[in-house]
Design a protein around this nucleic acid. Sequence first.
DNA 1: AAGTGCGATCGACGTATTTTCGGATAATTG
DNA 2: CAATTATCCGAAAATACGTCGATCGCACTT
Lengths: 255, 255
Amino acid sequence: MPTQLGQTQLGQTVAPVIPDTERTDLSDWDRLLDTIVHRPRRVSERKQDRSKRTHQQILNAALRVFSRDGISRSRIADIAAEAGISTSNLYEYYKSKEDLAYDVPNMHLGSFFEEFRLAVADKTGARERLLLYLSMSADYAREHAEWARLLYLEIWPSVFVSESELRHSMDDFTRVVMFLVRQGVEEGVWSAGQSAYETAAMLVGSVNQVIITWLLYRRPRNLTKAGTEMTERLLTMLENEGRDKAAPRKRKAAR
Amino acid sequence: MPTQLGQTQLGQTVAPVIPDTERTDLSDWDRLLDTIVHRPRRVSERKQDRSKRTHQQILNAALRVFSRDGISRSRIADIAAEAGISTSNLYEYYKSKEDLAYDVPNMHLGSFFEEFRLAVADKTGARERLLLYLSMSADYAREHAEWARLLYLEIWPSVFVSESELRHSMDDFTRVVMFLVRQGVEEGVWSAGQSAYETAAMLVGSVNQVIITWLLYRRPRNLTKAGTEMTERLLTMLENEGRDKAAPRKRKAAR
DNA sequence: AAGTGCGATCGACGTATTTTCGGATAATTG
DNA sequence: CAATTATCCGAAAATACGTCGATCGCACTT
């Protein structure tokens, strides 16, 4: 947990608000991935194995129930029953339903980041990394639809994520995109004329929109394909941006 | 998970899923706006004036409380108190908290569509209409931040909007963008090569992302400006799309 | 101007669900 | 194998949602 921007300043200066002057060093990429992969791993600090198993059962049960009934309609009692424990025992693990709800997504979020780190290992260009990242996120949502419903439709945009641990992981998600957008600028793959912040919002927003629509309507049919196509299209547009006014084709890393 | 989909006998054919073959007639535009403006107007059917006032007070109070505490943490009792009525009286107006939560956004949504219809009256081109629509939606969120918090952060993506009246209004929002994207294709302003569906997702997703980030972090500072810039950037990219491979630079649109 | 009927309001009550508490049971330690 | 700690559970308190019957007051009649 390196210099955490959040917590301290009341949320205003948190995460996605990374100063545009921030330098993107090569080794930074690995460090960034490290931070991110480790963050959601809020290891169960229980002493006994039995308890660790129980914790896992709670998380699994919660995921099923929450995604089936929605958070507000879910009952703690159902989750406990599904996990095979008593209602009151669940309170040994989470102090409230809300607390539980905000912790559930962390599980998969961690494994998504891990999968990504593995898959991205042999890629170095900003374009291919971004393409991989965003299409993987769509694919991951398709593959873990229950989790995705919970995260994208119920928790992610919610006001109170701000106050939860989850917030940092969500910010990490954007942070990766920001990093890669900057890397692309330095590589000259796309123009430096635009705010990296805005570009990242565009990428993340578009892909999320596709994912959310799929979760709600199952359209388009093939989410993986749609996510990849959307990303490719955006990246191509980005590369061509500003290049139409007879501008020089190559733009070596600025700064 | 088909629990949700069961509902979609109706849902599937709604809004965002408009067949790509749909024709965009000129007069359709006015008809579309008409439908949309009238939909959210679930007029208070109360007989007495006193009651109409009460209803309004409930809506105002609910907006304040919901946006302050979040839906799940809000208590009906608080809302009633804020509205200056008894808890039980509130149930004369809404049969449940959920019901109330989903009705609140309609109020402003109606007036947004109305404002838009007024402002768009003298614009005919797809580009200027889209620019107006999307930047207005960002500006409207800034101006009515409480409402926007409720809609964008709590309700919009929520699973259960599927079952509410509000769903139609939300779909209308996308439908307008879809319409205009198709209009642009017919005008030759941008290429027909891409799925209108995907293009609309891109536009809506990007702008929503900007709005949501602003609501959560108050970044970027000037939401109106950011929304407009984002939209302009996207529209320009769209216009240049597919034009880079030595395509003829000029493509005057039939306005 | 008093009477009448219905729409609107309220306080008290019933129900559902979350959360707490004290003690029982199981694991771990020395 | 006792002592200690971790984990679990049943019962009950606390909280919030939602209902019901009685009362109030507005508008319209006579």
